[in-house]
Design a protein around this nucleic acid. Structure first.
Length: 491
RNA sequence: GCCCCCAUCGUCUAGUGGACUAGGACGCAGCCCUUUCAAGGCUACGACCGGGGUUCGAAUCCCCGUGGGGGCACCA
């Protein structure tokens, strides 16, 4: 466990919905920062203006807040190392690129995209590894500088070493050795004057004094490049941690658009915003995603505080992990049961309201113990407890007819039930149980039939929370009216 | 095609040369509890990818295969 305060960052691109992978990376960053008394930072990597989508940045900030992963520094909260949006830092990158050019580690490139395309096609045809052919690498620096000064369109490319190997160290995988001849002279500053990720992220991580870089394993390919850029500047390297990628539930490949749509039909999603709307708890989502890539021996159900306490970058795993939504359901249900009643009530209320129901807070608090262990997601509350807030219920005649009985006998049960209930000043588990048990004994009907008719009559549904407790909350007038209605329906 | 990474139950994982009869969790199956649905309790099923080494001893270290994943942009 590192005792030095860690500065970590989540650096998403505002190019679409906030993904589960972003949430998990943010969580680990947050845990490490909190555990060490450091800072967790949000940086927006919006250097690709073509791909930037309006609203995406807001969704990321909303998502992090919903998850409870509040950042200490970021675009909307400020901080000592801002600005935290890369498009607002362009001069900085241009200066840094220039120092690289001056020190011979980078060079202007005047090749047109069209020429580059052609070269790439040629190389592919010859089954070669497609990479920059080095035309501008060998230009006379003075000549290149003249053309730049003359305003000729150009990019800046990083000059990778051509011989030897680059050794980069990933905290989870150890040393990764790459032959330099495999490396490519990547563009680090584009024609539009904005940097590519390779430059921007390295500069910012250095400027913002990031101590641990946690990012997806898809960056492993350009990892040697990044290490070379940092070394060209002469900077210290952070601890690098490349997190395992998430695979689709089948384990075969990354989540596709089609798979994502499939998951949504099933009440699941890989997007944070969807998860929230589908009735998942931040605690559930966090606990679940934390465990994909973090090896915890036992006691896997954890609060965020417990995660902060137990987290260690040493127990992160490097292998890809298949997403398992059943496990999300499990963690969600578990955390719902762990919530204090008033907290659960507050979280569940919007889902009733969303269905157009008028919710009485005192009543809501009373039904929480009845529905709590039946909920997998918050929106399940409507299915189990909607009838508490409806003026009337509308059971079908078919549902009112008890199993293995006909309408006539079911009517008989309903009528008898009405008599029993009418005779009782108060119905609760104790007072209701005895007379109905006696009726079951004497009538010859079984408990399932008797309680079944009553359940459908009172709740309008075949599956419900415990009957007598529910009736106690609904109130005498209402359940008597509903049983009377059932009798009419069965006639 | 080239490069890189990964490899324990169906899935997420524990395991860092002897404590392994390989542990936990999800799921699945059965039983108990039970007026429905759940929750809870108990039990069962279930894995070290293959082959070579190293070692007294390997799930653990090395090599080779195989399988899977990721990447090869003026995208991140």
């Amino acid at each position: 466990m590192s005792l030095q305060p860690a500065r970590t960052r989540i650096a998403p691109s505002p190019t679409g919905h906030m993904h589960l992978g972003t949430a998990r990376t943010a969580l680990y960053c947050y845990l490490l920062a909190k555990q060490t008394g450091g800072q967790f930072i949000l940086r927006i990597e919006d250097t690709d203006q073509k791909r930037t989508v309006p609203g995406a940045e807001q969704e990321i900030m909303d998502g992090l807040r919903w998850l409870g992963l509040q950042y200490d520094e970021g675009p909307d909260v400020g901080g000592a190392y801002g600005p935290y949006r890369q498009t607002e830092r362009r001069e900085l990158y241009q200066r840094r690129a220039q120092t690289l050019v001056d020190s011979g580690h980078a060079y202007p490139c005047f090749c047109s995209p069209e020429r580059l395309d052609e070269v790439r096609k040629e190389q592919m045809k010859r089954k070669e590894n497609p990479r920059y052919d080095g035309t501008c690498r060998n230009l006379d620096p003075a000549e290149a500088a003249r053309r730049v000064a003359a305003g000729e369109a150009h990019t800046i490319r990083f000059k990778v070493p051509q011989e030897g190997v680059t050794i980069a160290r990933d905290h989870l995988r150890g040393e990764i050795v790459t032959e330099n001849k495999q490396l490519n002279d990547q563009v680090i500053l584009k024609t539009d004057g904005l940097p590519t990720y390779h430059l921007a992220a390295m500069v910012d991580d250095h400027e913002m004094k990031i101590t641990h870089v946690l990012r997806g394993a898809e960056w492993l390919g350009t990892f040697p490049l990044h290490v070379n850029i940092i070394r060209a500047f002469g900077w210290d390297e952070p601890v690098w941690i490349h997190l395992s990628v998430f695979l689709k539930p089948s384990g075969k490949g990354k989540m596709s658009k089609r798979e994502a749509a499939e998951a949504l039909k099933d009440g699941h999603s890989i997007f944070v915003k969807d998860l929230q709307e589908l009735g998942f708890l931040r605690e559930g989502v966090l606990n679940w995603s934390a465990l994909m890539g973090w090896g915890v021996a036992e006691d896997e159900v954890m609060s965020i505080e417990q995660m902060i306490e137990r987290f260690s970058i040493d127990s992160l795993t490097p292998s890809p992990a298949a997403i398992n939504f059943q496990k999300l359901d499990h963690f969600n249900a578990t955390h719902i049961r762990l919530l204090p009643a008033d907290d659960l009530a507050a979280r569940v209320k919007p889902y009733f309201v969303r269905q157009g129901l008028v919710v009485d807070d005192a009543k809501l608090l009373k039904i929480i113990p009845l529905i709590r262990e039946r909920l997998t997601t918050l929106d399940d509350c409507v299915a189990f407890g909607g009838f508490f807030f409806q003026d009337s219920v509308s059971p079908t005649r078919e549902d009112l007819i008890a199993k293995n009985l006909d309408a006539q006998r079911s009517l008989e049960i309903a009528q008898k039930a009405y008599q029993i209930l009418e005779a009782l000043p108060v119905v609760n588990h104790e007072s209701g149980e005895t007379p109905f048990r006696e009726y079951v004994e004497s009538s010859g009907y079984n408990a399932g039939q008797v309680f079944g008719v009553l359940r459908v009559a009172v709740t309008g549904q075949k599956v419900s929370p415990p009957l007598f407790e529910s009736m106690e909350i609904i109130g005498r007038d209402v359940y008597l009216r509903r049983v009377a209605q059932a009798i009419e329906l069965l006639k």
